[in-house]
Nucleic acid binder design. Structure first.
Lengths: 157, 157
DNA sequence: CGCTTATTTGGAATAGTTCCAATTCTCACT
DNA sequence: AGTGAGAATTGGAACTATTCCAAATAAGCG
């Protein structure tokens, strides 16, 4: 079923090899960046972060690497409304809560039992490879929480 | 008949009025089109369909109308992976099954109990206004079917 | 070491959507 | 019925996110 120690930098080389792909500095740093700050960054945001370590990397490569990581099942791509795709290195089954105020996204633990129950609503013949659960709302803590948001920070329009 | 079923063309004028908006031919036809063929069309597809009735409508207006309908809670906007937003006039709580083969999207009944259970996984202080459940996989027929949907066809637009 | 193939890169191209300014339509009020 | 204010529509330009492409680079392998 699932793999024992998935979410570590070292898993990368292994997984890549398994898929007949090479471990490159770009792929490593992109993955590291995702592991280091798990705030569901966009490709652009990953680009910025990776550049501090690999100043010459190109945005196209960031897209390539992210795609590769998704292929290898090391990273999940998440799409909220219209906006850019966000990337999440959390492999455990979880839902996403999208705080519309701050734009931040939080992982929500998804109990296996519930996951099963959700799958169970599918009629026969529907074979779901994956399921995505996305909440939208306000993570209205009594006190405002530390900024985790990428929400409007960049969305200068 | 049923007040509980707002998914009728007539509901439109009412809802619009409630929001202080006007009922226009464009809005009516856009809504009709959604009700008539519930295959989760994209804005483009709606545009094409509406044009047969209102040949001079513009794509911008279709976007406007769809947005308006979403605001009025008559229509849900759904986003699968990177692709265009799709529109769904089904107001009852339901999940979506996205068939990766055909590109088609099916509504899946969502039992209220399950919906509650899903909401229950949220930690306190998380106030979800809505939840979206999206399955991805292969639907239905035990035997493979030739190409059909809007999947990755590039020329079909 | 040179060959082959994978990977990266920058820029151009594309898709989907939004923005904007000008026009047209509606409605409320004389 | 006429008019003015505000809504709504329209076409096209602008924008954003992403993909495509062809050339340059890097790596593994014999």
């Amino acid at each position: 079923m699932s793999i024992a120690t998935p979410t570590t930098p070292d898993a990368l080389a292994q997984r890549l090899a398994d898929s007949g792909l090479r471990s490159t500095p770009q792929r490593e740093v992109v993955y590291d960046v995702l592991l280091k700050k798990r705030d569901h960054p966009t490709a652009d945001e990953v680009f910025v972060r990776v550049k501090t370590e690999l100043p010459t990397i190109s945005l196209a490569t960031v897209y390539n690497c992210l795609e590769t990581l998704v292929q290898c099942d090391l990273v999940r791509a998440v799409n909220f409304e219209r906006g850019p795709t966000r990337y999440c290195p959390n492999l455990r089954p979880h839902a996403h809560f999208h705080d519309e105020q701050s734009g931040a996204t939080h992982d929500i633990e998804l109990p296996p039992v519930l996951l099963e129950q959700v799958h169970a609503i599918l009629p026969p013949n529907y074979d779901a490879k994956s399921v995505e659960i996305i909440f939208r709302g306000a993570a209205g803590s009594p006190r405002p929480e530390p900024v985790e948001g990428q929400g409007k920070a960049k969305a200068a329009r």
